[in-house]
Write a protein that binds this DNA or RNA. Sequence first.
RNA 1: GCCGAUGUAGUUCAGUGGUAGAACAUUUUCUUGGUAAGAAAAAGGUCGUGGGUUCGAUUCCCACCAUCGGCUCCA
Length: 604
Amino acid sequence: MPKQKSSQNIEKVRHSLAHLLAMAVLEKYPKAEIGIGPTIENGFYYDFGEISISDTDLPAIQKRMIELIKQNLVFKKENASLAEAKKLFRNQPYKLELITELHKAKKSITIYKTFSIVKSQKSLVSSQFIDLCAGPHIKSTSEINPDAFKLTKIAGAYWRGSEKNPMLTRIYGLAFESKKELDDYLKMMEEAEKRDHRKIGKDLELFMFSEDIGPGLPFWLPKGMVIREELEKLAKEEETKSDYVRVWTPHIAKSKIYETSGHIPYYQDSMYPAIKAEDGDYYLKPMNCPFHYIIFKNKSHSYREMPIRIAEYGTVYRYEKSGELLGLFRPRGFTQNDAHIICSAEQIKKEFLGVMEMHSRYYKMFGIKDFYMRLSLRDPKNKEKFIDNEKMWRYSERVLKEAMEESCLPYEIGIGEAAFYGPKIDFQVKSVIGKEYSVSTSQLDFSAGPRFELTFINNKSKEETAFVIHRSPLGSHERFIAFLIEHFAGAFPLWLAPVQAVVIPISDKQKEYSASIAEKLKANNIRAALSDANETLGKRIREAELQKIPYILIIGEKEIQNQTINIRYRNKEGLSAEAKTKVEEIKIEKLIEKIKEEIEKKII
RNA sequence: GCCGAUGUAGUUCAGUGGUAGAACAUUUUCUUGGUAAGAAAAAGGUCGUGGGUUCGAUUCCCACCAUCGGCUCCA
């Protein structure tokens, strides 16, 4: 009970802080226009127009907010008539817009006034700040802990989230009940930053970018390539088991195909511009779908062979807007774990369930527990974003919902999140820094069938139009590996580790024997390295630990005599100091057996 | 694309209106070390790119590019 109450209170505190922020900003920048100031996870923000500030101005604003808090200002709610409200906010265009809308929607207009109290008179005086607001708020700023909040950053944000509107300046703040919670949160974010895939990718030499090549175009370095290839191997195995067939398709194509697909009208802005050739315009492919349809159409199909599952690790290029690029999460060139299941209407549900089972297997394999699925439907109020086919939307959304229910996996519904050609199921995970994103997506497409004339002959000898399921359980190599890097903090499970074992001779005397051990490991398909540089043992162990190599094998005189190997296991988080440095002596044959088994079973 | 910030050696970062410095990494030498950094020396930079101001710009101003934090978008 008390916890519940306190969590409600912090919401009020955060909201009240947003008002104080607006108050402090208006004092310092009287011409500023105020937008909205809601609470968010861990804090609050407020949007301002007609203001020019940078993060160096934040400490002064925060200082003023603390002064305001210490004045024990009182929040008071009032109802206002349309005329009163319009008068109060006559210089605030954004507020006027909201007032007009509230009035139109026949909702009551409430305002919050912030007063200061003159102690001697015990009465309220001088309303210092008035905001259009539904509340609720705390009674007085004495409820705010001035040490438990912090203005963190400045960002641009479109008024009401639309690109068409002016861009306002958003000031973000964190707020908690105690200073300790704030400090803990800041500490946590600091720790999370250490797991950032961009940092680890550089430290472990997994991938890189080059300004000379172009933004958003990743290079896979030898160690990162190992992970890519392991994932690809996994996908091939799993897909073969599930009766997929594999293909390879070209990377450029004539424009006609994208006109048929509808991508040119919908997505031309985010495609690389055309390559001009004598016989017309060619585009880098932004998706693999039409190519797989063409393969399907290469011959006629009977209902007996349906469904047909065409798979490819397909490389695509999308000209994402410059500000949208984000390491491997949002590159411009990436390779998808793609496949298209072309099936009849009756087969949709079963195929979808199969796709979801495949997801579950993968997620279990990687130990991904913190995820949920989002059933993404169209927004019936915003139909222009979606293909106009009421009947098909209803049918598709119903089938997907049924499949979702039958899968027994937890899911949420995302209105307006559907693809333009059909509903989808996205697998949502959270990155270490708390950012949520879709790792993979499975979509039902009822428009590709008629558009591309994807048909098969049914059991009544009639031509029947097929449905398409787009699916990519492992997303793209880029996004999935970015996720795995953060998920494992760079300490990949043995089967994915770029270097699986490093052999470290204590001195030059054991160099030759150590080299022979490394060779033996390699002969058994174990990715092994020899660390025989002219450095101290401690340093070479440190380097192996920093490289997060799972098996560190130490060889000294004793090991040569006993014909054994001394294993130091990679430091694992959560282990006691003692367990971290646990060592074990083992015969080489037994070690190879152990490592091979661990790789085979993909132990995490 | 929009708002804000940043850009100095391979990496992480100091610093300055008078053509630059540390640590780690690299190379060489010494050291042969029993579980997370042994020592010394050397080499390494058109201070993101292009303009402008100035006797002189890496430093100040402008533009562009890239990256980062957000917004928008993500077939």
